[in-house]
Design a protein around this nucleic acid. Structure first.
Lengths: 267, 267
DNA sequence: GCACATGTTCCATATAATGGAACTTGGTTT
DNA sequence: AAACCAAGTTCCATTATATGGAACATGTGC
């Protein structure tokens, strides 16, 4: 079955396999048929069948008209995750203020298994149609927020994260290997600011800063995105101080925040 | 282990147990310690320990400072669920229009395992809806949207849903048993409109309509919420036609919508 | 009515989960 | 400092669960 040493962080027990199936359904991005998943050859027929039965019965998948989609129960759980584990609720007022002040699109992201997870977004008045929304994921190696966080990761987590990067050359400016990326990360670590120089999508540029804990580990990152048509990189660079200041405020708020402390009803 | 006759909260296999743990963490609403969950007596020590290890390794839980919270991976999956399985993306323009037209708070909800899951919300002045609003759950038996959907459920699903209701008397107007609720559901089924007459929270009232498929099964529900201070029930009742019209448009759009259809278009 | 594709069930076997108890770890009391 | 306690972690024989090849059902077009 499973070779002794499989890929890092993969396939622990039945739960891991079930999550693989969920990921596969999520990756499809549209309702999938049982046979479509089966055709990937990743699972034997009966195994996949029972796994999907279980997931459906749990509300993690939804089965209608012979096709499967992700289930609503995920939305319910994510609501809790968004409140408990994400910076978004804490950062909201600061991001509102920053977005209003700069009149630009602001993104709040966190690192999830080596990928960038956007947890909040504040659009400028004329929203640019692009790759973004809360819950959306993106690559770390070619985004401003991704590099900002990578640059402050401890070595063991960094190498784990780098091993998960695709290094697909989206544009002519994209890093295509870990070494060239590491060189830039060192600079970013020093300056505390990172840029996306059209590395992910042509004409899209951004400036980003990490949100750092007391210990210097990245809690998340903040970015302002624009286009080459509207801003130069130098113009974006001038926004860095405002971003840094907001990031510091968020970091402070995040660490001051202990949950409501409702041990008992204090009668 | 499990008694021969499985109880309402049927736990299927390891995945089911893992989900129970996730629910427990979600229910806490704040970071929980291993010992807190252990103290509920629902799981033996070693079992709970390994289960949480697995969940953490999968990114479904996050472990920091000795406490567990729901993990970010859930947000990522929920993003897919929101797009694939919820009415929200389809309903968005219609809800925007309705909300602008009425200048009132509009909710879009769906049924999830007997409970009302709010998948979108448009407040009169608050423009950005996200997981902060979407993802909230509420009871079916004492909310407008809940009753609107229950009223159109086939008998088997209805009785399953009713068996999951708490019938907690939140206010003096709350239904406290299935029979009294069923009587109202019959009326709602006829009229196609339901009301929350301060059944969940004092002074909070609402009018709701179901979003029905061609076959008459509820896909979701739409509501306008207000307070006794601002509106009478009669005033809310006058909004019903606008709600019904919007619901019909959403139903049509939902059923017209087949996903992008990348392969074969029916020859 | 037949053929082929898709979906479902069976069942002996292999695998993974179980949980009682023993063992660390870190902090507090005597 | 030794003794204590609580929280967290590991061990391992036992038992429950998942596995998957193959047979069985269902249904759609010919």
């Amino acid at each position: 079955m499973n070779a002794p040493g499989r890929l890092p962080g993969h396939s622990d027990g039945t739960v891991g396999k079930a999550m693989d199936v969920l990921d596969a359904v999520a990756a499809a991005g549209e309702p999938v048929r049982f046979s479509q998943l089966l055709a990937t050859g990743r699972w034997p027929k009966a195994t996949l069948y029972r796994l999907m039965q279980t997931l459906t019965s749990q509300g993690l998948l939804s089965h209608q008209d012979g096709s499967y989609t992700l289930g609503l129960r995920l939305i319910r759980l994510a609501h809790g995750a968004w409140q408990q584990a994400s910076l978004a609720p804490i950062a909201q007022p600061f991001i509102d203020q920053l977005s209003a002040e700069l009149c630009e699109t602001v993104h709040l992201a966190q690192m999830d298994r080596g990928q960038v997870l956007y947890v909040d977004k504040r659009a400028a008045h004329n929203p640019i149609p692009m790759f973004s929304d809360a819950g959306k994921v993106g690559p770390s190696y070619c985004t401003g927020v991704g590099k900002a966080m990578l640059a402050h990761l401890p070595e063991d987590e960094l190498s784990a994260a780098l091993s998960r990067q695709a290094f697909h050359p989206h544009t002519a400016h994209t890093h295509t290997d870990a070494n060239s990326l590491r060189a830039e990360l060192a600079e970013i670590h020093k300056s505390g600011v990172s840029f996306d120089r059209e590395e992910h999508e042509p004409t899209i540029i951004c400036v980003a800063v990490p949100i750092l804990s007391r210990h210097g580990t990245p809690l998340g990152a903040l970015s302002v995105t624009s286009t080459t048509g509207r801003h130069s990189l130098a113009a974006l660079a001038r926004l860095a101080p405002a971003l840094k200041s907001t990031a510091a405020q968020i970091a402070e708020a995040a660490q001051a925040w202990t949950f409501p402390q409702r041990d008992q009803a204090t009668p």
